[in-house]
Amino acid sequence: MDKEMELITKPMKVINIGIDSFLESLKIQGVEVVHVDWRPPAEGDSKLIEILDKLEFL
């Protein structure tokens, strides 16, 4: 089965990361949605983020 097709054949369930006002309009439309309280990782230190990502995906 074509995996891409699942985008339209399965009910939409959304994870919202970032601007929280996008939540409202999805909720109004009856979409199941979870909002992530996102913060810049590792205090925004790009070198540290890179190291963390490498560890995580090992």
Partner: peptide
Amino acid sequence: NPKTLESAFEALPGANLALI
């Protein structure tokens, strides 16, 4: 609210789209 995408995924099984 969950703090990471991974924990959000646990909170919403079957999630299929991330709005970033």
